[in-house]
Computed example of a mutant assay.
Amino acid sequence: MSRKIKLTTTACLVIAFLLYFLSSLNAEAQEKPFAQPYIELGTTVIHSENSVGGAGLKFNDRWDVHIGLMGEGETRQHGYQEQKFFYSFSRVVNPGWRFLGGEIKTRIGVAYTPDFQLVGERNYRLGLIFHYEIFDIEYFHYSSAGINDVNRGVDGFLVRAWLH
């Protein structure tokens, strides 16, 4: 038994919309790469003054996977911090705001910071990003929001260079 498909005006419009939508996704995907690598350098402020560096990949202009290295040095109230690696996974949000010729973006994520003097091992990662075409300036904050006993927070500024 064969079934006939009847193409109504609504069905034709739905198909046309889906084709247009899929082609626009493809065009957008061609404009921006799926994964954008970066490197970054900065310093912590407020509770310490240690150098910070890192590298990562940003996927679909939204998701960020990061590995960082905090340099050794003194912290305020919590002694000496040895050089330590840390890791994070976060979501970058672009609300469409502009400031001083760049876009303002925000970050929220999770971080694993083993053996940090100022925070515990599991933390939130927050950020306020000023994005320009080839670089970012970010204020960052790592904190457990009171989950860990030690929770002074790690704050800092960094400059991120996009590797196109």
Rank of each mutant, 00 (worst) to 15 (best):
A29W: 10
A29M: 12
A29P: 05
A29D: 13
Q30E: 11
Q30D: 07
Q30R: 14
Q30P: 00
Q30K: 15
E31Q: 14
E31L: 14
E31I: 13
K32P: 04
P33D: 09
P33Y: 07
F34K: 02
F34I: 13
F34M: 10
F34P: 04
A35D: 01
Q36G: 01
P37T: 01
P37L: 00
P37G: 01
P37I: 00
P37V: 00
Y38G: 03
Y38T: 06
Y38E: 03
Y38Q: 02
Y38C: 00
Y38L: 02
I39H: 01
I39T: 05
I39P: 00
E40Q: 11
E40F: 00
E40S: 08
L41H: 04
L41N: 04
L41E: 02
G42W: 03
T43M: 13
T43A: 14
T43P: 01
T43R: 07
T43F: 10
T43Y: 08
T44F: 03
T44M: 04
I46T: 13
I46Q: 11
I46W: 12
I46Y: 13
H47W: 14
H47M: 13
H47A: 11
H47V: 08
S48V: 08
E49V: 09
E49W: 09
E49I: 06
N50C: 12
N50W: 06
N50K: 11
S51H: 09
S51V: 09
S51E: 09
S51Q: 10
S51L: 13
V52S: 09
V52A: 10
G53F: 07
G53K: 08
G54A: 07
G54R: 01
G54P: 03
G54M: 08
G54H: 03
G54Y: 05
G54N: 06
G54K: 02
A55M: 10
A55Y: 05
A55L: 12
A55H: 01
A55Q: 00
G56W: 06
L57T: 01
L57P: 05
L57H: 02
L57R: 02
L57W: 09
K58T: 14
N60K: 13
N60I: 09
N60Y: 15
N60H: 11
D61C: 06
D61L: 07
R62E: 15
R62A: 15
R62T: 15
R62L: 11
W63N: 05
W63A: 08
W63I: 15
W63H: 09
D64R: 03
V65T: 04
V65F: 10
V65R: 01
H66Y: 13
I67D: 00
I67E: 01
I67W: 03
G68M: 05
G68V: 08
G68I: 08
G68T: 06
G68E: 01
L69C: 03
L69V: 09
L69D: 02
